[in-house]
Write a protein that binds this DNA or RNA. Sequence first.
DNA 1: ATAGGAATTGACAACGCTGTCAACAAGAAA
DNA 2: TTTCTTGTTGACAGCGTTGTCAATTCCTAT
Lengths: 347, 347
Amino acid sequence: MNRNNINKPATITDVARHAGVSIKTVSRVVNKEPNVSQATLDKVQTAIESLNYRPNMSARGLAAQRSFLITILYDTYLAHSSYTSNVQLGVLKHCNQAGYEVLIHPIEYDKATVSKRLEQHLKRTRPDGLIITPPVADAQNVHQVLNELGTPYVCLSPGGPQADNFVSIDDEKAAQDLCEYLLALGHSQFAVIVGHPDHIAMSAREKGIKKAMRAAGLPLGKHLQKIQGKNTFHSGVEATEKLLTQGNLPTAIIACNDEMAAGAIHVLHQHNIDVPSDVSVCGFDDAPIAEHTWPQLTTIRQPVHQMAFHAAELLVEKLAGNASPKSRIEFSSELIIRASSCAPKGL
Amino acid sequence: MNRNNINKPATITDVARHAGVSIKTVSRVVNKEPNVSQATLDKVQTAIESLNYRPNMSARGLAAQRSFLITILYDTYLAHSSYTSNVQLGVLKHCNQAGYEVLIHPIEYDKATVSKRLEQHLKRTRPDGLIITPPVADAQNVHQVLNELGTPYVCLSPGGPQADNFVSIDDEKAAQDLCEYLLALGHSQFAVIVGHPDHIAMSAREKGIKKAMRAAGLPLGKHLQKIQGKNTFHSGVEATEKLLTQGNLPTAIIACNDEMAAGAIHVLHQHNIDVPSDVSVCGFDDAPIAEHTWPQLTTIRQPVHQMAFHAAELLVEKLAGNASPKSRIEFSSELIIRASSCAPKGL
DNA sequence: ATAGGAATTGACAACGCTGTCAACAAGAAA
DNA sequence: TTTCTTGTTGACAGCGTTGTCAATTCCTAT
């Protein structure tokens, strides 16, 4: 192995010599520890500048028992979603400014094995903390492993009722809002394409819809068809095809995310069913695809980027030892009305 | 800072004691070094298993002067593209099995400052190698920095004529194929929505189209309108609107990627121009969006996932010191004919 | 048997940093 | 002034690995 690296990077020793202080003092400056006189601080900082010194992460990690690494853990299956890339960007934004590097670690989600895979990653890589998205975030055994190993983490999910360190929107309320909007337009025959069953947020959305319908006095049995989806465009296609074969076309379809809603529009288009005049279609998330469909999707906007940023912020605070006062945070969502919804025919 | 980590992970010393050998021998086993007897190897492996030992990356990194980290470097602007997520998955697939962790590092691409940002990352994080995508991969100064610091890397881009360590398809040839297909259908009035100008692959695609047209004896001045895009859906929308105001509607629009093609279809739809009977629209890449548009896009399929996997493979070999024989590899692409293209009207 | 060489193993010193603790300096209180 | 307190600094011992090199064992060919 030939290191053709000509200009070896400066070490802390070089800086110390250059500034005429001990390496420990340089270390203090680098780590922003208190009790360094202004004069020394200036000297050291000048030396750091002029040598263009950057601490060696491995050495730092070894000595301080930490890795300066934060892992984003998510389901391989969702790797292509705009949700995931938004999470990545939000987390990166905070982590990089806080001095952490970001590792991505998609795992093939499977209720039974997910915790084993996670444990392997933790033992091997030892990140200082993790940001976890659904459905991984919603698996009980994942939390067990994390707690046993004492690794801090924050989840992007509504979590259960007593869940801690979760960042989310109020999915139930948002879905309720969306459904109420459709009810106000005069809709009464609904179909809902629900998402991944292990995804707590997805169930919450379903609950919200039901709640709104019950509040409007509509018996669910007669007014709501439920079809299982898997969060993807393709599953939205399948679900809608199934719906069409059932023969009982609703006036409004609510898909629990935008990909599935786009799939629904696609199928309706194929069958010459007009959106929205024959059927209104609504999605959830305000992903880019919501603006790419024809007509554009009415949906719920979820500030994923901000939520991810905030989750990272929370995690970094935790790592610094500052137990944050609020450990469960809800962002607010917004109903975005576009062209895929209108009052039902004959009203 | 309280470490609530109860069961401290086993160290190499624990394994050595448990197996009754020296730590150096354990190290040999872990690193698959030669010259370890079968008996010792078994003993050590048993000990590793039973203690569930995983080497400490920081310590390994410090001692061996490497970080076991590979960075994927890309343009922030493209962070949401399916291209990027495909690259991530492809790279991860190989890296994880080769014992590397994958860091993501989007940088805001800007010709002038990109090399400074890169240098910062390299000094701070010291990844063992990088995988770089366009347009970052196509910036001259990026290569300079990398070579000065002696950090190995592989680019996913056709690169220049004498470029080394590049993995790509033959973009020019692929575009030529696509254009020839349209020519064979009878088209002669074209518009091309070109992509990011710093993107070598994009220019190659433009070249391929021109080449095919010239070969067909069509003077470019009269038969080809060129509009600038920026690789995004939105830029495809803008470009197409501009095209429409120019008043001279072609019979076929070729966008240099699928996002822009989807934008074009969107605008044509708004203007009640039928695709494909009024205008054929073709894209490039076979991104998921190509199947989500209505009608679905005729496009060129590029095996991004495989290319990324291969790029990672190449990089890892380089890191292992095996200078690979082929340092520039071309994958083959495929013309995917879908519903967005047909013979022009009146033929 | 016996020298010569190869295969196998271990002792020990890095690697670049942080934590601990002790030493010292500078004020503050007496 | 003396003593105590607080603030500032540095010496030194790790942190858990790998690289070097020497020691030992095991063959193979005389």
